[in-house]
Amino acid sequence: MLMLSRTAAALYWLGRYVERADFIARLVEATVRLDALSARPAGEAAWQSALAVTYTDEAFAATGQSYTQSHVARFLTLDAGHPGSIIRCLDMARNNARAVRTALTREAWTAINRAWLLFQNRASTGGATATLNLVEQIKGETRGFEGSIHRMMRNEATWLIQLGAAIERADNTARLVDVKYHLLLPEGEAVGGVVDRDQWTTILQTVSAVTAYRWLYSEGLQPANVIDLLISRFELPRSLAACVEETVQLLSHLARRTGLQGEADRMARARMARMQKTRTSEVIVSGLHEYLEAFVRENAMLDAAIARQFRFI
């Protein structure tokens, strides 16, 4: 018999939550570097943008705390009081994993459980170095989880976890580019103005693309190139193009197994066809913010279509 819908939903959300935890960890790491370690500390603005990227700006404002590293880093990692923290993401990931314990390998379960244990009985992140250590550990465990998924059987369970991760990743990258671009190039300022090296490096670090950038672009750090890389280069695993392509592939693996194609398949394929024709330069000219906003919206619609198609309860 085919997989239960409830199991499928838990696997999909497991994929999403682990990916989200990993992304927040990278974002915190890059922001610490930008704020504390660069020659020109970016300060409040850097932390405010990190909150905006993770949809937690309002929740943080409600705490009344100031936008310092110690407050925001703690808020994004250890604060169980709102759903946008790593600790909550891992909690949700672990709950979903526990509900489908037998669909996972021991290795995959252990990685989730270890990441979760990192946070038990931990009150503060400590200073910059301690925070970097903590996020390094989280990244290690989520990498371990990803590796274990790759070693699992190539079946519905694996594909659903990866599908959740791909949908989440697409959302994360789009948000990151949108917020950072807006911050770095306020309205009216032309692309190609003063290049803040540190800031643009932060973006690349968050999506592990520093080396990829050097490989693909010979002309040094240019905002337009960074945006091109993050939006339309299929080679970069965290680019929108790569996420869009992976989503199509995973859905077609699932369709082959279930013998059914649906709304989600059609939406994902239409999105890929458009992506293949997308030119970054045209996007920038016609309005990057509008483009990304529309992408995030469509991604959410695809998420809902997936839930309907696989009858998540």
Partner: peptide, 29 residues
């Protein structure tokens, strides 16, 4: 697990037309 059959919860089952179905990713069985 040892019988190789699904472990379901009540929410996985629906009754329609006096028949019990289990909800899977490819529809009802």
């Amino acid at each position: 697990d040892s019988m190789g059959i699904e472990l379901v919860e009540a929410a996985d089952l629906v009754v329609d037309d006096d028949i019990v179905w289990v909800q899977t990713i490819a529809g009802r069985v």
